[in-house]
Write a protein that binds this DNA or RNA. Structure first.
Lengths: 324, 324
DNA sequence: TTGTAGGCGTTATCAA
DNA sequence: TTGATAACGCCTACAA
């Protein structure tokens, strides 16, 4: 080690960075000064080898290009960075196999993983969480630490909103079959529709892509629905385009609700949607993960933190049209 | 090491993973099988310690939530992953100071950095590239390896396209004053407009945000322009909304061109734009970076790879309207 | 084809 | 308050 040559011993240099309070202040200063001159930066992998802590966590998402994820990733990265932990990002391309491989590879290069919207079977997730610290976001697996964005609340609010505007025939444009969020949303909608006595048809499953939403428009129109709720804003935006093409005006003829609030007011008309606090979820995930990594205890092994997402009324929903 | 207990020696296990061809096939199989059973995964940091290669690179971007970056990040991650290199993602929050700190921290945890749209002064960038392998994307610093997306070509094509449709009065909705891309684009447009003898007014500078584009619509209409080129798709999409509000139809009354092709066909009408091969840029950056890391030589020290971005005709451009 | 020995940079422990 | 030493898990000679 270069710094040692320019002054003291290796352990003193180590302490100057890791436990400065154990050294005389002027020793710390002297070492750091020389280290800076030499362009020395502590070598993390070596440190990892002796401490067993890598100082790195990973965030794994299905698709980085999906605008739902960047805010989560950013929040994770910020929260981790604040604690001196760096963040590895991985993208599973929506492929469960790739996700599984990734998790395995990450096991020895990270202290833990924040797994967002996992597409893996419950059993697999549970097994992973046993061998490597893991916190789920947007996925509910009993016995695994998780942060849940509860969109069911918002879905109920959305359906109440539509029913209040006189819509009696609704449609849900569903997301991926393997998505936990989708089944939650679908369940909440179905139950609420029944309670209110309005009809609800379901289109899908769909990959959350613009084209899919666009293509689903014709099918949804055929059901006679005047109120449409989409799995997410991406599908909703596609639906908006599809409806426009079919000569259907929003919200005059059909009211449309998205989910996740990732497009803000960037659509015409601005989309009524369900706002999920994704940044907060990312932060909470890091807290839970780091607490788990540090704390030896298995105390909170099954902790589930739930954050509610609420309906936001913008301009894509309005009174139901008079019966055709 | 556990696997050793269940069969042979440590170095044999090491070879089973790093140099399988040096071992008898059945030995490799046996070792791997037992390793799998025990849930063994090679410990990368330890490997890094002895080889001097971390097997990790970083991508640094100003803002992960800006839709221009995810495709680049994804491409980097994919290209690196294919070569067994993992990718660390960092976000500078658009702050040069944070960017500088990050680069320093990354020096000992990565083999090199892909730095996208850096906001750092040239001298700083140049200095960093001397102490740690670095490849720039979307930033032109003499003497530093870099991948440039040349949108000037596309800008010329766009203006030719509009002029060919009969537009004589054009407007450019400019991006941030400090942006290298903006000055490149503006220069190309100004020169070409002069060559073709069409007028070009400039609005801005603007931050590349939806609201800014929307607000700029009125100003642009006042110039009498029938052909509008925006710094990027985000501004163009805002402009689209602003024009719609002003009762101006696209492309009937005004033709609109974006840049970067980050919205694909997700606007109505689908935006004519300039497609920057950002995925290709990410891939090229990784190639250049890894070649630099491996190759001892300083041969390509100043390599600049330029990739042309071309005009894509979709539905937001059409014949110029008859003179009012 | 396989085993043995030494070293990579850091930290924890123990001694001074 | 500081130094010496062993150890972390892996890799690369070199030896067998």
């Amino acid at each position: 080690m270069v710094a040692a040559a320019a002054g003291v011993s290796a352990s003193t240099v180590s302490r100057a960075y890791s436990h400065p309070h154990l050294l005389r202040p002027d020793t710390v200063d002297r070492v750091r000064e020389i280290a800076d001159e030499l362009g020395y930066v502590p070598h993390y992998p070596a440190r990892a080898l002796s401490t067993g802590r890598l100082g790195t966590i990973a965030v794994v998402v299905p698709d980085i290009a999906n605008p739902f994820f960047p805010p989560v990733i950013r929040a994770v990265e910020a929260a981790a960075g604040r604690l001196g932990v760096s963040t590895l990002l991985a993208d599973t391309d929506e492929e469960p196999q790739k996700e599984a491989d990734l998790l395995l590879a990450l096991q020895r290069r990270t202290d833990g993983v924040v797994l967002v919207s996992s597409r893996l079977p419950e059993a697999t997730v549970r097994a992973r969480s046993l061998v490597h610290p893991l916190v789920l976001v947007n996925r509910d697996v009993e016995g695994v630490r998780r942060i849940l964005i509860d969109t069911a609340v918002g879905m109920r609010e959305a359906i109440d909103h539509l029913a209040g505007l006189g819509h009696r025939r609704l449609a849900y444009v569903a997301g991926p079959a393997s998505s936990w969020s989708d089944s939650e949303r679908r369940r909440a909608l179905t139950a609420r529709a029944r309670e209110l006595g309005v009809s609800l048809s379901v289109s899908g499953p769909h990959r959350p892509e613009h084209e899919e939403g666009r293509a689903a428009a014709a099918q949804v129109l055929r059901t006679g629905a005047t109120g449409v709720i989409a799995f997410d804003d991406v599908l909703a935006q596609g639906m908006l385009a599809g409806l426009l093409e079919a000569g259907v005006a929003v919200p005059r003829d059909v009211s449309l609700v998205g989910c996740d609030d990732i497009l803000a007011v960037r659509t015409v008309p601005p989309l009524s949607t369900i706002h999920g606090p994704s940044a907060e979820a990312g932060r909470a995930a890091v807290d839970l993960l780091l607490a788990h990594i540090d704390g030896a205890g298995e105390d909170d092994a099954a902790a589930a933190v739930s954050i509610s997402a609420h309906f936001v009324h913008r301009a894509s929903t309005g009174r139901a049209p008079r019966r055709a």
